[in-house]
């Protein structure tokens, strides 16, 4: 089970590298969020999957999954969610100001008109 998730996260990270290296701004943004997904899956796997019950306070459950990676993952998801949204806003503003969404053209020192 762990192996499958690790391979899946590897595929996600590989895809995100391809996307981040492309020229379009939108693809780069999708790439960063895919990278975050891959990394979060990895973080989840590090606490060992399928070890027991859900980590919710209950007197009858004696063995339960490691709650820490899940808590960390939640925090990391919130952060990457906010970052993706902010990046989208910046990308739209950049597109309006510079008139391009091709990073090849985003070089040098542009001058304000």
């Amino acid at each position: 089970m762990e192996l499958i998730i690790i391979i899946l996260s590897g595929i996600l990270i590989g895809a995100s590298v391809y996307l981040i290296l492309s020229k379009s701004v939108l693809r780069i943004i999708i790439g960063t969020s895919t990278l975050a997904h891959g990394v979060h899956l990895m973080l989840l796997t590090m606490g060992e999957l399928k070890r027991g019950n859900v980590p919710v306070l209950d007197a009858e459950v004696s063995s339960y999954a490691d709650p820490l990676p899940q808590a960390l993952m939640l925090t990391a998801i919130v952060i990457s969610f906010a970052l993706t949204a902010f990046l989208l806003a910046v990308a739209i503003k950049t597109y309006r100001e510079l008139g391009t969404d091709n990073v090849e053209e985003m070089k040098g020192v542009p001058h304000d008109d």
């Binding site: 981040i20 701004v25 780069i28 960063t32 990278l35 975050a36 990394v39 979060h40 990895m42 973080l43 796997t45 590090m46 990676p69 960390l72 990391a76 952060i79 990457s80 970052l83 902010f86 990046l87 910046v90 990308a91 503003k93 950049t94 100001e97 510079l98 990073v103 985003m106 020192v109 542009p110 001058h111 304000d112």
Partner: peptide, 27 residues
Amino acid sequence: TKIQLQEGFKYIVVNIVASNFFVLGIA
């Protein structure tokens, strides 16, 4: 301003990638 948006976008992307690897390292 134009240069701020242009360079800011690169700055953000570079730092997001680095931050994701930070999570990976913590994992």
